[in-house]
Design a protein around this nucleic acid. Structure first.
Lengths: 338, 338
DNA sequence: GTGAAAGCGCTAACAT
DNA sequence: ATGTTAGCGCTTTCAC
């Protein structure tokens, strides 16, 4: 079966190529009569426009790239979900690029991806959203970009962020409100801007409440389950251990829960543990985790919407959008014992 | 900065377009002298061939589509990981299509995706890998396909599978070997072929061991955490409850662990719980789950390798490849109390 | 070993 | 409202 092209349709409908193109692209200046005639030809011939040809002629690929850290987790799937929702609605396709942000040759590798794909635009997630070199490369290439969860404020590049510092503050306010003042904090990976933000909410809340900030109560994790275990072991063997541990993501919190249980410490009776992200695992473990729900999917939806506007050369309402986090209280937190 | 095209390079190097094309595509019949000259021009001009133009002229897009169930979980990220590994190595890009397999308009929706993208090939995961209509559509379109985890044997379409039935059998053999004979089984979603396979391993092992197969010990789940909880409640309130529960995926197993703990049942002391898949959550919960490690990433790597061979019109070594599962014994299983 | 010409299937610019 | 004429940047065909 031969491929039907625009020429076949033009012949069949008795009009010019350009008119077919007009109907295809929903341009004005086509009488509804001709339009109907052409559409009839479409179905009769089973015409399907060739995306490559359109891409070449219009220099649009309808491909959007998504760059994210290759270490897979629930963040990634939520980002994908959101981006796909908009892409689908707008007729775009999503091409995924998980990359190791510590990879030395990241830039050159990504550049070769760029060369072989002609993406219409790119969505950058942490920590890529803050990588200067990458942003420069994309700018030089004049590829539209939207950043998700970026920390650094670059007024030239649109971004969607969440209020991590505030949410972290809110979590600590909550812990203090139920009587905790020996509150420990586990930091995330240093390369992620969120790490600093989440810590700042913690210190702010404690300071405000007049609770001294103790070095030994602030542990360095890296967002992994294992690092949560390590930090928990250190914290729980302190002479004066915390009554509550706030881990800056759920995987680390899960690690704490595990270590606590192994030590026979009952959660939340003896120890309150809270996380951040509302990862699926936060519901699967027992007790389920009190955590912060990050609106990741929503952020990706908004970022993709913005990106497509840029691609279409429509003006952006604002350069930066903030979507708010939400505290979710579940089973892993309880009032401090008096 | 103006775009450099093949014409610019041809002029610069003092050769014809076609020779440039030859160098670009590593075709023979170019003297190494000319080749060097051309390559020099490439770098001097900073030439980057336009993928769209190549795509149009050669009718190859270098895009591979990945169709998978939209309900996100670790299966998806592992599949993506594997597919991407091969795509990257071979210069392809991965475009993702999560779909709801219960969606009535799935076929027509996916067809419109096809129309607007011109994928070179498609990887199908369960349960799509067994959807007749979809396979027919793809066949009609003459789009190369490889199926992952398919059940139905279609000698016309290549596939990569794992030995689920055997692994399930092995798990039950293990449970029996440590003294269990009151073993319950939780089935997965009916639309997934794996559900039947995993059940068959269970019944085979029990029959072989002379253990009667009890209806009330076989519960219908749907692969979700919640369905695991439901089934656990039913099983644990039986007059004669099981001493071991084998859930056909880890999320359901996690649900069982949660319900058991809520009821004060100690795992693995009072109850053995095992899962399937080796999902991340299987390590995050406590006790960590004894499970079957499915070689999902490896399956995707192999599937993508096969797909690219088909796209390149190279012969396939064999139509179907099996990659073996592996039993992982962790903390959630222990000998039956005597 | 190299090149000229003719597409690939569509859209853009400019008529009419 | 519709058509004509050129491309878009590459590969293919076939000649030399």
């Amino acid at each position: 079966m031969k491929k039907i092209t625009i020429n076949d349709v033009a012949r069949h409908a008795g009009v010019s190529k350009k008119t077919i193109s007009r109907v295809l692209n929903q341009e004005p200046n086509v009488s509804s009569e001709t339009r109907k005639k052409v559409e009839k030809s479409f179905t009769e011939l089973g015409y399907r426009p060739n995306p490559q040809a359109r891409a070449l002629a219009s220099s649009q690929s309808y491909l959007i790239g998504l760059l994210y850290p290759s270490q897979s987790n629930s963040y990634v799937s939520n980002i994908q979900k959101g981006a796909l929702e908009r892409c689908r609605a707008e007729g775009f396709h999503l091409v995924i690029y998980p990359e190791d942000h510590e990879n030395e040759s990241l830039i050159s590798q990504f550049e070769s991806n760029l060369n072989s794909s002609n993406l219409d635009g790119i969505i950058l997630t942490p920590p890529f959203a803050d990588m200067r070199k990458l942003l420069d490369l994309l700018k030089e290439r004049e590829i539209p970009v939207v950043r998700v969860g970026a920390i650094s404020a670059l007024d030239s590049i649109p971004s969607v962020i969440s209020n991590d510092a505030e949410a972290s503050y809110e979590m600590c306010r909550y812990l203090i409100s139920i009587g905790h003042h020996k509150i420990a904090f586990i930091k995330g990976h240093l390369d992620h801007g969120a790490t600093e933000q989440r810590l700042s909410g913690y210190t702010k809340a404690l300071k405000e409440a007049g609770i001294p900030i103790l070095d030994q109560f602030i542990q360095q994790g890296n967002f992994s389950f294992e690092s949560g275990e390590d930090c928990a072991r250190r914290l729980l063997s302190l002479k004066v251990p915390p009554s509550a541990i706030f881990a800056s993501n759920d995987y680390m919190a899960a690690g704490i829960v595990k270590v606590a249980k192994q030590k026979g410490i009952s959660i939340p009776h003896d120890l309150t543990v809270t996380g951040f992200d509302n990862a699926p695992a936060s519901r699967y473990i027992w007790p389920s985790l009190t955590t912060i729900k990050q609106p990741i999917t929503e952020m990706a939806i908004e970022a993709t919407r913005m990106l497509i506007r840029i691609i279409r050369k429509k003006p952006l309402e604002k350069l930066s959008t903030t979507i708010r986090n939400e505290l979710i209280v579940r089973e892993s937190s309880a009032p401090a014992k008096t």
